[in-house]
Design a protein around this nucleic acid. Sequence first.
DNA 1: TAGATTGTTAATCGATTAACAATC
DNA 2: TAGATTGTTAATCGATTAACAATC
Lengths: 220, 220
Amino acid sequence: MTNKAKSSYAISKQLLQRLPLYLNYLRDFADREGYISAPLIANAMKLNEVQVRKDLAAVSSSGGKPKSGFAVGPLIRDIEKFLGYDNIDEAVIAGVGYLGRALMHYKGFEEYGLKILMGFESNEELIGTSIDDKQILHVGKMVDMCRRLKIHIGIITVPAGAAQEVCDQMVEAGIMAIWNFAPVHLTVPDHVVVQNMNIATSLVILTKRMAEKLAEKEDF
Amino acid sequence: MTNKAKSSYAISKQLLQRLPLYLNYLRDFADREGYISAPLIANAMKLNEVQVRKDLAAVSSSGGKPKSGFAVGPLIRDIEKFLGYDNIDEAVIAGVGYLGRALMHYKGFEEYGLKILMGFESNEELIGTSIDDKQILHVGKMVDMCRRLKIHIGIITVPAGAAQEVCDQMVEAGIMAIWNFAPVHLTVPDHVVVQNMNIATSLVILTKRMAEKLAEKEDF
DNA sequence: TAGATTGTTAATCGATTAACAATC
DNA sequence: TAGATTGTTAATCGATTAACAATC
């Protein structure tokens, strides 16, 4: 609502990936009362300085001052606001295995504007237990619960074979956004967004880049 | 070694991200003896068909047949080989919290060419225990262990505040590639690659895309 | 003032998509 | 053969980087 003009630009995925990195860096930055420059951040992150400058210009409400840079505190708040960390979305999680449990335990999500309310499982032994203060209910109750609580975000950490079925139920329950940790491609209607968190993908990039580095060496 | 010619092209990160998706799809494909076409895959993944065709051309050793497409079995093997899933790299993990434990339990890594050998922790209570058959040792033993076993991949799942220190130790231990799950930017020498697995980044993209979808709706 | 840094326009680079001949 | 699909060259698109005037 407030920054409608800005959000009508298509925000690039790359920018969205860099902003949390800047934010981490800024939050660790000692002097919150001081100023920080784009070249300084760029240097720390090993990014191009023009890129950082453009990114900051895109999110900063007050802009930077030539010679000194951006005021640290306001810049942090601008990025947080841009990323939506200021208003917290509620989510449910389906699949309380090791990964699901790790996510439910993770304290950091509220900082990122996400609150996991409860978990759903098919394993009867887990039903009725809770993790931290988050109840674990039978997956059969998911549709009704999400509808009544008007939950819009679902996290899928069930095994690959069960993911599409759970996904369909989430769609039926009115979920608008699905964060999918199962290594399968999910089919959803157009009004639902799916973000895949495939660890295999990340792993491949790591090992390939390592292999390339080793190959470079061998060439000399 | 075997496909030196191919690996001297700079392989794009995007290609590396799409290949595991194709692989998932192909592995689930019913008829492994049959043929599959690029347009069919493209349609299932909602990707452009030329893109899939180019990707497959880049990794397929035998190429496709006009009219019928690519032989499913050989294509699976070509992708696996390209991604390095055929030779398994050994890794260690530092930080056996909920996330570290989830990774140590995860059975799928060997399919992706990774084997986690052991975990390192500073919490004395965990030292000497094991997860599946993977021992948990004191982090003080990490450097020596990695050197002696010639481990080249390190996974970091310690809290943000400890990540850089653990990272430095891994570098000292001869680790070449670091898969970093801590939400901090790690500084490493040039010969080491870092792949960040920042869940916050993925989450941001999800919620932003959801917000965009909602905004679109409101515009009508 | 001199100099570092901003904001922005223009140039470059790389990835995606379109077009089309070759072929099974 | 007719038609779907491949492989590849050319066109387009978008993101990154360079250049530079404005300014604190």
